[in-house]
Computed example of a mutant assay.
Amino acid sequence: MKSFLFRCYMTLMKFLARFTTMEDNEIVILNGSGRSGSNGYLFYKYLQLNHPEYNVTLIEPWPSSHFGWKVWQKIGAARYIITTHQPFKVRKHQINVQFWHGVPLKRMGIMANNTKRRDNRRNEKLWHKYADIVCSSSDLYETLMSACMAIETKKYHKVGFPRLDALKNPVISKEQLLKDLFKVEDKDAQIGIYMPTFRYELNDPKIMERIKSGNFFAFDDFDIEKLNSALKERQQYLIVKLHPYEMRMFSNFKSKYSNIAFLNNDYLFDHDCDLYELLGDTDFLITDFSSIYFDYLHLNKPIVFVTNYLKQYEKTRGLLIGPYEDIIPGINVNSQRDLISNLDHLDNRQLRNLRLYWLNLTDQVNADSYCDKIFDFMTKGY
């Protein structure tokens, strides 16, 4: 019932917004990605800094039923509507630029094991009707997206993604990040970051209970004291960045451990930055099935893949590429014992070659500035 009423609300507001006069220098960014690799937010910052001739409005979180009429007037007046999730616009002559929010590794849309045909058909119609420019990074990206969303090939344009510009230009130094999160100065420190995918959809109370108790890896043999000691011995520091839903589950959010710290959105908002503007400070990534690993390839740094609930995830939702062990350019661990035993040798020549191989597959643009390329195309080339 709630979703039906929300669709009615959106339909009404879209209709009313059409009566606003459209202006060629108005850009609206509908950001549904928060501060974790948000193409929308990062492009907003770029436009404010580099293109003051345009009036740019960031609307977040999107979608929402809590926006006032002035917000909808902005949407109606915009020549360009930029989205990070479903494509959207209120009038025919607006241009929708679709960033999306990651190179798809997990199945979604018509390819997923846990979606409904009715919802999939609705999404297909939205992409067909509203998406004008679908930003792309490679043939592989286009193949994966179209497999899930049935997007026509003519909509794709290889211009890359704003989040890729942020990776190599941290806005906070590594030294400051260590002070802020770990209260230390350590010139020989290695910083790792753990970023798993959204695990709630596994629909497994056991996993959720483990996470709630502080076992953020959901390992059978999890022992945070031993993990912290192992990190401390190696001058390694681990930032834990979970999905916001999982962070809310924690009974004790603040870490009392010297080499493990939790990063939440408050820190990112307080520093007016996106997570990707900090990733360049890190020395290795730990993830599971999150597509962040495709982006992290641009840093050419070690990646560790946690696979203790791989089979369950493949059954519940599914992955687009496999076998999983053959597509990951990094170390595969399924227990804390495995993880600790690999902390001393996270990288080697074979893994570096694998990372470059997958980088070439997932990014054929390789631009000095992806934001410049996107801006020029949408305002001059389309």
Rank of each mutant, 00 (worst) to 15 (best):
S146Q: 03
S146L: 12
C148A: 13
M149P: 00
M149G: 00
A150Y: 08
I151Y: 03
T153M: 09
K155V: 14
K155M: 08
Y156C: 07
R163G: 01
L164C: 00
A166L: 13
L167W: 08
L167Y: 07
K168R: 13
N169V: 15
N169Q: 14
V171L: 15
V171Y: 03
S173M: 12
K174N: 14
K174A: 09
Q176W: 02
K179W: 04
K179N: 07
D180K: 06
L181G: 05
L181W: 02
F182I: 13
V184Y: 06
V184K: 11
E185M: 08
E185K: 13
D186Y: 01
D186Q: 03
Q190P: 00
G192Q: 10
G192S: 13
Y194Q: 06
M195T: 12
P196V: 06
T197M: 10
E201W: 09
E201R: 09
L202A: 06
L202Q: 01
N203F: 12
P205E: 12
K206V: 14
I207T: 12
I207K: 03
M208R: 02
E209V: 02
R210I: 01
S213R: 05
S213Q: 05
G214S: 06
N215V: 08
N215P: 01
F216E: 00
A218M: 10
D221G: 06
D221W: 12
D221T: 07
D221H: 12
F222W: 02
D223F: 11
K226E: 13
L227G: 08
S229W: 01
S229Y: 07
A230L: 07
A230D: 04
K232P: 00
K232T: 04
